[in-house]
Design a binder for these strands. Structure first.
Length: 801
RNA sequence: GCCCGGAUGGCGGAACUGGUAUACGCGCACGACUUAAAAUCGUGUCUCGCAAGGGAUGUGGGUUCGAUUCCCACUCCGGGCACCA
């Protein structure tokens, strides 16, 4: 073995893996299966971010360990390639998004491969590949057929300057991502997915899965389940005059029906549909109409900014009747009541609700303190009902964009909306000249009349295609299913493969996807489950989350700050193994970590230390054999090395402790402490003169998931013929780990004064005797009889006097 | 405002179900090897004190023989949601 040259070694080992295809998952195997998953990347033009290797390496460590533990492991990779940055790049440069994507994928592939992640590349998928998005479209049509995909007028973010509809994620904080001007809400017809139909199950079934508490609570918050009462406040006779058709009253939703006697007024959202029905009875209509108009005109930013002062207008000439006591209360409209939530109307109880109190104080409305009653009883008594409401809204599923999956339906003059037949899928994205959305906010696809004008699949008459595309969350909502059978052209995946591989056993991803991708894909999965197309009700058995990698000083890495680290440079200078070890050692996996180029050297030194020990051992093997070429160290040499270690190795105990610690720490994703333990072991191994070959090999085996190139390379150098990844994960011997003696602290009145050595599990009396024989103890206690002695087995003895 | 995290040396961070705080790594200092340098190895490195000893885990209380760990109040930092009735 020559000097450690990471470039040569890593290249060589990666070639070897590729040649032998050792990371290919088998669809039929007698081994138990293990499906580990990372969130597939968006292949951006910037190339791989230094943050990517963190979750990839983590799941790679788990996948490699599982293989060595005898599992048939599926650890796939693909590309979530539809998306805005590519489209914006196309708008700017005129380059075809498909071409740009292809180029980016080539870069990403090279970069990820250079890290030595054990992905099964034979199952690579790409959401922008028509063979893939055929099935995204197909699933969408299943939603449509079940009535869960529907068209509705919906408020979208509208940029008045760019004249374009924006997705929520493009209008964060009520500001247009492109030009920075304030956005408005505008009504537009959109495709919607009825995720709210699954709200209750998405909430409840969180009990069935192994997710971190913070993920569960964030999803629960987002779904926003709340139980309460729906009560009806009827209109007074004065409001109904000349309105014989006005039968219904004002329905309100409340979680505090017990406060019904404290109601002093009722508030409708300004957009509430009842308002127009009673328009003729409202005596101050001009004022009311102005308020409604002003509300609509207000930008999102303005509405968000004024969360302090509430505004509203009373509907004069009409009153509502409190069903509990038949008293008349005024009706107001105010924009602090949201039309989308609950019933769009609330009963105001200023005594018990801070918002109602603020409003009452501003407009001099009475605040009354009526007795509280039982919520259920009063609900029944007034003819209301107990209901459950959710904050979750249906998913706005269309985008007026080019680079997405076309929505596969047509508008027929005769038949209305007609889905494209299964055999005509996929509806492919046509080529366009310009990727800029049109002036009226339509997708660039609307400009290609050749493509838009088509025939109705039902009647053959003239029809127009839908020109909206799907959001980038569509392809990622089911990709983990495709991995089980990525080349299937008849189904999105075969039942057999789905049954064998799903659910995903362990899925790691970012916290930023908790209420988006993670929730969306759970929804899709449940829908497919209801259609009996997938065998489990939840897609992911276990979910974990990694922390971000920040720049030095704890700031986000960004081009503008100039603190972006390119993984290519690190791999080139230090090697993939060092980068992997460094990113795992940097801090607790689930927390954010600060990049420090200065500190990488520690991980590199550790890798070099491992190399030096390997060098020493191979020299020893050589000196007992006649071969000069290390690659042909033969069996007899190894046998000699083993024999000469007949007496117990001085690191045997530490080795077994380390095997245990690393085995357990990997399961808890405590990679930093696992590496720390291996560092201690390596330091000890280097110190001793003779290292047992088998001990060293075990060390290489537990190091392998972290630093697979060097582990594999030395493994072969030591005469092994099969990949270390195909070897069995070492077991630790509990009896070897147990210490015979242990040092315990001696405290006098709770303060540590000295320590004594005792036999492991020694009797309490003996320990006390030893303690009182100690000079320092005598000094403090003298001849006195201590008041109390507390002994914690094998840990501490505390003497009180 | 609400919800979820977090705060430990010069720095990143360890510490099992309450039991010797500061493992491991970076940095720094000194030493060995070397003609020299690099690399490597060794020693030291929370703080005050010559020492005995004292003080330190964001702040202030509490529980306990004993608290980084549990409880209460507060400050600051990060993330999510935000007039959700």
């Amino acid at each position: 073995m020559k000097n450690y040259d990471h470039k040569k070694i890593e290249k060589k080992i990666q070639k070897e893996w590729e040649k032998k295809k050792i990371y290919s998952a088998s669809d039929k195997s007698k081994k138990p299966k293990f499906y580990s998953l990372i969130e597939f990347p968006y292949p951006s033009g910037d190339g791989l971010h230094i943050g990517h290797p963190r979750p990839y390496t983590a799941m790679d460590i788990i996948s490699r360990k599982r293989r060595m533990e005898g599992f048939n492991v599926l650890f796939p990779i693909g590309w979530d390639a539809f998306g805005l940055p590519t489209e914006n790049y196309a708008i700017k440069t005129g380059k075809k998004p498909a071409v740009v994507t292809k180029k980016n994928i080539i870069t990403f592939t090279r970069q990820i491969k250079s890290l030595g992640i054990s992905f099964d590349w034979s199952r690579e998928i790409n959401t922008t590949d028509p063979a893939y998005y055929k099935w995204t479209q197909w699933i969408f049509l299943q939603f449509y057929k079940k009535g869960l995909a529907y068209k509705a007028k919906s408020y979208i973010n509208w940029c008045p300057k760019d004249k374009i509809g924006l997705a929520n994620e493009e209008a964060i904080g009520g500001v247009c991502e492109r030009c920075g001007s304030a956005t408005e809400k505008r009504e537009k017809e959109q495709w919607m997915l009825a995720i709210t139909k699954y709200a209750d199950r998405l909430d409840k079934d969180l009990d069935l899965v192994d997710y971190p508490e913070r993920v569960k609570s964030q999803q629960r918050n987002w779904i926003g389940k709340s139980e309460g009462s729906e009560l009806e406040f009827s209109f007074c006779p004065c409001a109904k005059e000349n309105l014989p058709n006005l039968k219904e009253g004002i329905k309100v939703f409340t979680t505090r029906a017990d406060t019904l006697f404290g109601v002093t007024y009722v508030v409708l959202a300004p957009e509430h549909e009842l308002i127009s029905k009673i328009q003729s009875r409202i005596t101050n209509w001009d004022e009311v109409e102005k308020y409604i108009k002003d509300t609509k005109k207000k930008s999102e930013m303005e509405r968000m900014a004024e969360d302090k002062t509430k505004t509203g207008v009373e509907l004069k000439g009409v009153k509502a009747i409190n069903p509990a006591n038949n008293e008349e209360v005024p009706i107001w409209i105010a924009d602090y009541v949201l039309v989308e939530y609950g019933t769009g109307a609330v009963m105001a109880v200023p005594m018990h609700d801070k918002r109602d109190r603020d409003f009452s104080e501003k407009y001099n409305l009475p605040i009354i303190d009526r007795p509280l009653v039982d919520a259920k009883e009063i609900t029944q008594k007034v003819g209301g009902k107990i209901v459950t409401k959710f904050k979750l809204r249906d998913w706005v599923f269309s985008r007026q964009r080019y680079w997405g999956e076309p929505i596969p339906l047509v508008n027929c003059e005769k038949c209305g909306l007609v889905p494209i037949g299964e055999k005509d899928l996929p509806v492919k994205l046509p080529e366009v000249k310009s990727y800029t959305p049109t002036d009226n906010g339509e997708s660039p696809l609307a400009g290609i009349s050749k493509w838009v004008n088509t025939k109705c699949p039902k009647c053959g008459g003239p029809a127009k295609r839908e020109t909206d595309t799907m959001p980038n969350w569509a392809g990622s909502s089911w990709y983990y299913l495709r991995y089980t059978d990525p080349k299937n052209s008849k189904e999105f995946a075969s039942k057999k493969n789905l049954k064998y591989w799903t659910p995903v056993d362990w899925y790691n991803g970012g916290m930023e996807h908790t209420t988006l991708h993670l929730l969306y894909s759970r929804f899709w999965h449940k829908f497919l489950y209801d259609l009996k197309l997938v065998p489990t009700s939840e897609p992911y058995k276990k979910r974990t989350s990694h922390g971000m990698i920040l720049g030095e000083g704890g700031v986000k890495m960004s081009k503008s700050l100039g603190n972006v680290i390119n993984p290519d440079d690190i791999v080139k200078t230090y090697g993939a193994d060092t980068l992997r070890v460094y990113e795992m050692f940097i801090g607790p996996f689930e927390e954010a970590a600060q990049w420090s180029t200065e500190s990488i050297i520690g991980s590199r030194r550790f890798i070099e230390k491992v190399w030096r020990i390997g060098e020493k051992i191979s020299k020893k093997l050589l000196s007992h054999g006649s071969h000069s070429n290390l690659n042909v160290v033969n069996e007899s040499n190894i046998a000699y090395a083993e024999k000469s270690s007949a007496s117990q190795s001085p690191v045997l105990k530490l080795l077994h402790k380390t095997i245990k610690k690393v085995s357990e720490d990997i399961e808890d994703m405590r990679f930093n402490t696992a590496i720390s333990a291996m560092m201690i072991l390596a330091t000890e191994m280097e110190k001793i003169n003779f290292i047992d070959l088998e001990d060293y090999k075990k060390f290489l085996q537990i190091l392998n998931p972290f630093a697979p190139h060097i582990a594999e390379y030395i493994w072969f150098e030591l005469g092994e013929k099969k990949s270390i990844n195909l070897s069995s994960w070492p077991k630790w011997d509990e009896s070897l780990i147990k210490d015979k003696e242990v040092k315990i602290a001696v405290q006098i009145n709770g303060k540590v004064r000295t320590e004594i050595t005792i036999q492991m599990d020694e009797k309490e009396e003996e320990v006390k005797k030893k303690a009182f024989a100690n000079q320092i103890v005598l000094k403090y206690i003298g001849q006195q009889e201590p008041k109390k002695i507390i002994y914690v087995k094998n840990r501490v003895i505390n003497i009180l006097n």
